[in-house]
Amino acid sequence: MKSQIIELYVNGDLRTVTVRSADTLLYAIRGKLGLTGAKPGCLNGDCGACTVNVDDWPMKSCLMLAVEAIGKNITTIEGLKKTPIQQAFVDNFAFQCGYCTPGFIMNCHSLIHQHPDADDKTIKEWLGSNICRCTGYAEIEKAVKTVLENQ
C-alpha cells in the first residue's frame, strides 16, 4: 500500500499514475505526468510557485499528497488555453524570469472565477500567497485588475 496506482483527473483527462503515498501532488504532476509548469520553490507552502487549481480553488501542490487529490478536478497551467489572464500577464510585463508565473496565474485564474468583483483587499489577500522576486508586483496588480475590469 505504500506505492499505489491511482487515477488523477488533470486538465480534463483521467490519468493513471503510480505514486508513493508520501508523494506530493507537485511531485506527481511534474515527475509522473511531465507537467512541469508548476514549480518547486520551497516545498513548504511558503512561495506559491507550485500553485494549481483543485476544484477551482488555488492549491499549493506541494502541500497536498497525490493520494489526497483522487477524485478532484485538477487544473495546471498547461490546462489553461488562451485565457485573458495569461494575455494580461504578457501585455503588462507581469513577469521577468517567469518562474513564479504559472503559480501566480493559477491563483489569479481562480480568484477571477471565485470573486469576479474582487476589491483591492480581496486581491491582496489572495495574491499575498505567492512570491515574485523579480517584479515589484505593480505589473501583476495591473494584469489581474485589467481582467477583472474587462469582465
Binding site: 500553485t51 488555488p58 492549491m59 491563483n107 489577500e125 500567497s129
Partner: peptide, 12 residues
C-alpha cells in the same frame, strides 16, 4: 483565521 498563513494555504 484569516491572518493565519496565507489565503491559498488556508485552503488546505
Amino acid at each position: 483565521a484569516s491572518e493565519v498563513a496565507d489565503h491559498t494555504s488556508r485552503g488546505k
